[in-house]
Simulated scan of single mutants.
Amino acid sequence: MSKPVSPAAGASRRALLALLAAGGLPALARPAAARPAFAQDPSAPFPDRPVRMIIPVAPGGSLDILGRTFARQMTPVLGQPVVAENHPGAGSNLAFELVARARPDGHTLLVGSDPLTINPSLYRRVGFHPVRDFAPIAELVRAPQVLVVHPTHPATDLASFLRLARQAEGRMTMASQGNGSIGHLTGAVLSRRAEVAFTHVPYRGGGPAVIDVVAGHVEALLVTLPAAIEHIRGGRLKALAVSSGTRSGALPDVPTIAEGGFPGFDIVTWQGILATAGTPEPVIARLHTVLVEALRRPDVAEGLRSQGFEVTGTNPEAFAALIREEANRWPPVVRLANAQLD
């Protein structure tokens, strides 16, 4: 169990909020991963062999489901197998480095999410740069973090939850998917803005954290909505607020943290597909078209929405802009949460 997040930790509230709102941090200055130089022939047919879909987590989670769903959808259209491969480890860094160093021809793809932009400030050394080493293709979905408690918890909304947390003077337990996860960092920002402390309880993934809140072993949890939505619908968890700037279509009756008295609060997880930097533009364009057409299929889109995702399907330029913004956003939050890992 980590130490409680103290309201006095890190940068001042005003400075932190200014940085988060303005994105005023310089671009990450870490060296790019070493990568062999491959000669590219933009006119070469694509694909001319199976495509690898690298999933940076173990089987079973939402990122794994997303990668396998789109691998199945892409295979008949591309005319080559799209093979989903799980490469968990080192907080997803192993998978990120694998794709960063791959031949830039579109035959190795990454199912990316927020750790791609969080990890360079979370870990002291990483072998990739989230902006320079990847070619974004399409953001596919996004989802908020949801603040949940056991149904018997006395809190009925965010205001009463924070009031109880203040009375507990740092003893209220707040779980997350893990140290430095987006749930942990969302909790750190909420702690700072609300001027209230929690005892952070990191888990190895959202699933185990959800189970322990359902069992009553920890009091509260900030977790990506798809990990908790079935328990919320089944009455095994009580949702108090979501972290997105607008309410979730999957939980329209649950207010946002911004509505609870924290204007501008807007933190979501995103998931999308990236290739290695230097992949020819025609290959990126074809992959984007195939992914977006799959995303428009009613069965695919409704399946994702039913899990609590918002379907996006952005173009490569918009996805690249999101990654640049996120890479600038997280360093001060990691410092605030005292979350840096070796």
Score class of each variant (00 low, 15 high):
residue 178 G to Q: 09
residue 17 L to G: 05
residue 321 A to W: 03
residue 314 T to I: 01
residue 252 P to C: 08
residue 84 A to Q: 12
residue 254 V to Y: 08
residue 290 V to Q: 04
residue 159 A to M: 08
residue 309 F to D: 06
residue 332 P to E: 05
residue 40 Q to L: 15
residue 4 P to G: 09
residue 288 H to F: 05
residue 316 P to L: 11
residue 132 R to G: 00
residue 16 L to V: 04
residue 38 F to K: 02
residue 44 A to Q: 09
residue 177 Q to R: 06
residue 85 E to H: 07
residue 205 G to Q: 05
residue 269 T to I: 14
residue 39 A to Y: 03
residue 293 E to P: 02
residue 60 G to I: 08
residue 277 A to C: 06
residue 159 A to S: 14
residue 235 G to C: 07
residue 97 E to S: 05
residue 274 L to T: 09
residue 329 R to T: 06
residue 342 D to V: 06
residue 236 R to W: 02
residue 101 R to L: 03
residue 179 N to E: 14
residue 240 L to N: 08
residue 167 Q to T: 12
residue 122 L to A: 04
residue 287 L to R: 03
residue 29 A to N: 12
residue 332 P to N: 10
residue 100 A to K: 03
residue 261 G to A: 06
residue 59 P to L: 03
residue 316 P to A: 07
residue 136 P to H: 02
residue 271 Q to H: 13
residue 118 I to Y: 08
residue 170 G to I: 10
residue 205 G to I: 07
residue 291 L to I: 04
residue 200 H to A: 10
residue 166 R to D: 01
residue 223 V to R: 01
residue 150 H to Q: 15
residue 187 G to Y: 05
residue 55 I to V: 13
residue 303 G to Y: 03
residue 145 Q to N: 11
residue 99 V to G: 01
residue 184 H to P: 03
residue 294 A to Q: 06
residue 56 P to F: 03
